[in-house]
């Protein structure tokens, strides 16, 4: 039995004294592809921010790769793709420079980039299909391409565990497809992926497990759901349930995946 990659027991998060997340138990095993879903304000992004340490836990215990979070310093094992809004800044930056900052977890202070760093950066750009635009200013790219740059930045650090916060929000369908292909590549390499998403779109077939948040609690934790079911997942009961009816006439692409699932 290998150690779970993420293990959060009885987690709670309060922001400025107001309880936001309560009673979160979440265990993610190595190689899992988990989608965190739920309505706006349900706490899915807050949960990812708590899991990455950006927000402190009010109660509960978080272990990453078996290490209690307080003692966790192995940041190179984590790749974080924040919600977009930050590919540009006050000064021009090239695509390559943004992706290169993903290597920081591997670099010592005051050391130049080594050959391995450059290879990892080139490969990350290759995976997201932006090698030919490496020298361009990041703000000249479309929103979907900028999102791919941010994923390449996380990829460049060669992490084992990815957190992606709404990578497809406001991204057109062709770019969503490229993102989905990228995530499929990562998943096949054995990476663990925690994806926050409102809509899965082309990523739906990749998901192993859906966790639906509602009002700061986990309302559902089990096999993937069709998007229409996400809104009603909490109505079936108060407990996590793992056996949901596998009937999705309105979304055949999801049902075909579930039919083949064990």
């Amino acid at each position: 039995m290998t150690e779970p990659v993420i293990d959060l027991q009885n987690g709670a998060v309060a922001i400025a004294g107001r309880p936001i997340l309560r009673g979160i138990d979440l265990t993610v095993g190595s190689g899992d592809f988990v989608a965190l879903m739920g309505a706006n304000g349900s706490g899915k992004s807050t949960l990812v921010r708590a899991l990455t340490g950006l927000l402190p836990l009010a109660t509960g215990e978080l272990r990453l790769f078996g290490t209690p979070f307080g003692a966790f310093h192995d940041w190179r094992r984590i790749g974080f793709v924040p919600q977009r809004g930050g590919a540009g800044s006050g000064v021009p930056a090239s695509v390559w420079e943004i992706v290169a900052s993903g290597r920081l977890t591997h670099r010592r202070l005051l050391r130049p980039l080594g050959r391995r760093d450059r290879a990892a950066i080139a490969e990350a750009l290759e995976v997201v299909g932006l090698s030919h635009r490496a020298q361009e200013g990041v703000t000249t790219l479309s929103g979907g391409q900028q999102q791919r740059v941010l994923i390449a930045r996380a990829l460049a650090g060669e992490p084992d565990l990815f957190f992606l916060d709404e990578p497809t929000a406001g991204v057109d369908l062709p770019n969503q497809q490229v993102l989905a292909d990228t995530l499929e590549t990562l998943s096949q390499r054995g990476s663990t992926i925690v994806l926050v998403a409102h809509e899965l779109g082309p990523m739906a077939p990749l998901i192993d497990r859906a966790v639906v948040m509602r009002d700061g609690r986990i309302a559902y934790d089990g096999p993937p759901l069709a998007s229409a079911e996400v809104a009603t997942a909490h109505l079936d009961g108060h407990h996590h349930h793992h056996d949901v009816p596998v009937r999705h006439d309105h979304a055949p692409h999801v049902s075909s995946l579930l039919d083949g699932a064990p």
């Binding site: 340490g53 974080f80 924040p82 800044s89 930056a93 900052s101 930045r153």
Partner: peptide, 20 residues
């Protein structure tokens, strides 16, 4: 000398924090 670190922090604070 600290350009990579200073650049990353100014570019995206949250990413830089999760990078340790």
């Amino acid at each position: 000398g600290l350009a990579p670190q200073l650049f990353a922090v100014a570019q995206d604070q949250e990413f830089a924090r999760v990078a340790g």
